[in-house]
Amino acid sequence: MQAGAGSAEKRRRRFAAAGIAPLMLWQFVFFVVPVILLLVISFWRTRNYRMVPDFTFANYIAVFTNGAMWRALLLSVQTAAFVTIACAVLAYPIAYFIAKKAGRLKGLLLIAVIAPFWISIVMRVAAWRLLLGENGVINQSLLSIGLIDQPLGFLLYSPVATSIGLVYAYLPLYVLPLYASIDAIEDNWIAAAKDLNAGPMRAFWEVTFPLSLPGLIVGAVFCFIFGLGEFVTPALLGGGKQLMMSQVIQDQFQRRLDWPAGAAISIVMLVIVFALLAVSMKWFRKASGEKL
């Protein structure tokens, strides 16, 4: 006989449901619903600065045909790609150093890399303005040691400045998954490769690099999607001659009051983000070592 078999199972289910429900409810109302609303109004029209319910693809067609919007999309993708590559190149050695060479300082050094990430973005950008401006620290230093005789104008209010700001913002973010992957590689595996007569370089390419690939890819995906949607950095460092996608969206919403147009660009951006995530899901699983 079976005296209430599965009642413990039911109890567990109830616990699970009760634990997860508040968060799910919250995220549904304040995350899913807003995204759906955005999707809905992206098919609406604007007349006399007022939204009119409709079902038109005009806003989407505009994203890909309107020169300004197309250029913004392109600039965003370019910048995000550049920032991702730069972060990968900069982050790899430091992640490797912390994971494999830092010895007892490992924990402290890792935290020290991550810590700037938690500083408010506006403050970080304010700092870069002090560094990059015409009278900024970098120009003044270069002038005073005589390396240049005129301040470098392209340092601030340019895509260069935006890129520097973004690399600064996302480097910590990239180090984290990379460190996790490299740290999980056992020294013995590398030693075994060397023992089998692989030189240090060979051992790196045959063992360390392939095993760190999940972290490298996950970091790249995060870096790219964050770079794509970033607003504060381009708005304050980028100058405003060449706009990025997020700036165009903000412009549509706040200055032109054309919400449907802004919503359509937002949705395009979302599609890129989620497509990237879907494609790289396999690597997220590998990097987390558990089903995400």
């Binding site: 006989m1 079976q2 005296a3 209430g4 078999a5 413990a8 199972e9 109890r11």
Partner: peptide
């Protein structure tokens, strides 16, 4: 009690404990 049988019974001291936490 950390797993439950799909079918069958477990008795401790003559009393069924299936479903008991």
């Amino acid at each position: 009690g950390f797993a439950e049988p799909t079918t069958g019974d477990v008795r401790i001291g003559g009393k069924s404990v299936v479903g008991l936490a």
